[in-house]
Design a protein around this nucleic acid. Structure first.
Lengths: 180, 180
DNA sequence: TATTCCATGTAAGACGTTACATGATTGA
DNA sequence: TCAATCATGTAACGTCTTACATGGAATA
């Protein structure tokens, strides 16, 4: 249950509603682990059935009643055990790689357009991540463990997007050369 | 249907059996797009039902009979249309990021071990990809479109693994510092 | 007045993994 | 003789997405 673990990890830091999780888990993790609210409500129900989280009904004035979830000590234990257990890296499965691989079927301009579109998307994400880094970690002193643990996923995101852009540039360069 | 497209893309280059695809789709694409043989047989049956691929029974001496699949012209058309249609990048969902994020629950040594294990796994993949590059593309002249299209996914794999290793190094460095 | 935000869910189906099942040939 | 390779499939289950469904409050 990969999504469930991400939700649990988020609920350990602070209690949240299904709605809140659906918007974004947390600064840092939530930048990558998004899911539809349907899936999140489903996982929350399952986690609660396993006593890994508990919910508290919070009535609000002028707003819908909330169901505020937080991790139980059992939830912490189970997550700690999972962390200690080796897991496999997820494979690199990207539509764009398939498109490039089969790119002989379409005019090169079509391929180049899609590559440029991806480049823009990844540049936007990179810019956003860098702003978040600036905002949340500009005065990180390097000896705050908790800040380090929140920073590292963001750092991975920054590297990941930068690498994407570098590859797009290489691809665009090589395919443009072909056209001339 | 993401896996189905990867299979189709592979079958456009040469006819293959389900067994062959399960071992690896193709040099380049197959380095990333692996799937179980069950899923592949399932997708092949579906693709054939849609007339995107056709199968040919090949009887062999001393070996089981093969079902050799190849793409139809309809299959090529459908794939070409899909390539032209914009698709979204897949999100970065990695167990290790969740583990780091919730790493406060375990001793740092546990986290460091898992980080080092990932580092080794990604280094192994990087080495393998670099060997494949050396083997298949060492004398690429840069004006062969087909070679370029096969090279680019591999290049992405190399960058991806190198980026992973760099991040693992950063994480190990930061967490080791914390311990001292 | 219309849209967005807050807030929660059910149902159906697609996608993917794990377990189960078979059987001949080749190499260690 | 035992394991691996070639070769194909079914069944059950888990994960995830898409569509459907509701309803009040705030904002444009």
């Amino acid at each position: 249950m990969p999504l469930a673990h991400a939700i649990l990890a988020s609920l350990i830091r602070h209690a949240r509603t299904g709605y809140g999780l659906a918007k974004s888990f947390d600064r840092s993790l939530g930048y990558f682990w998004n899911a539809t609210h349907q899936q999140i409500y489903h996982e929350l129900a399952r986690l609660e059935a396993q006593d890994l989280i508990i919910s508290e009904i919070v009535e609000q004035e002028g707003r819908p009643t909330q169901k505020l979830y937080s991790a139980t000590s059992l939830g912490r234990e189970v997550l700690a055990e999972w962390i200690a257990q080796p897991t496999e890296p997820s494979p690199l499965r990207e539509d764009l790689l398939v498109k490039v691989f089969a790119g002989g079927l379409v005019p090169r301009s079509v391929l180049l357009e899609e590559l440029k579109r991806y480049r823009i998307l990844h540049l936007e994400k990179l810019t956003f991540y860098q702003e978040m880094k600036q905002h949340d970690f500009s005065q990180m002193n390097g000896f705050d463990l908790d800040a380090t643990l929140r920073y590292l996923p963001l750092s991975r995101g920054i590297r990941y997007e930068a690498e994407w852009i570098a590859w797009c540039d290489e691809a665009i360069h090589l395919l443009d050369k072909e056209m001339s």
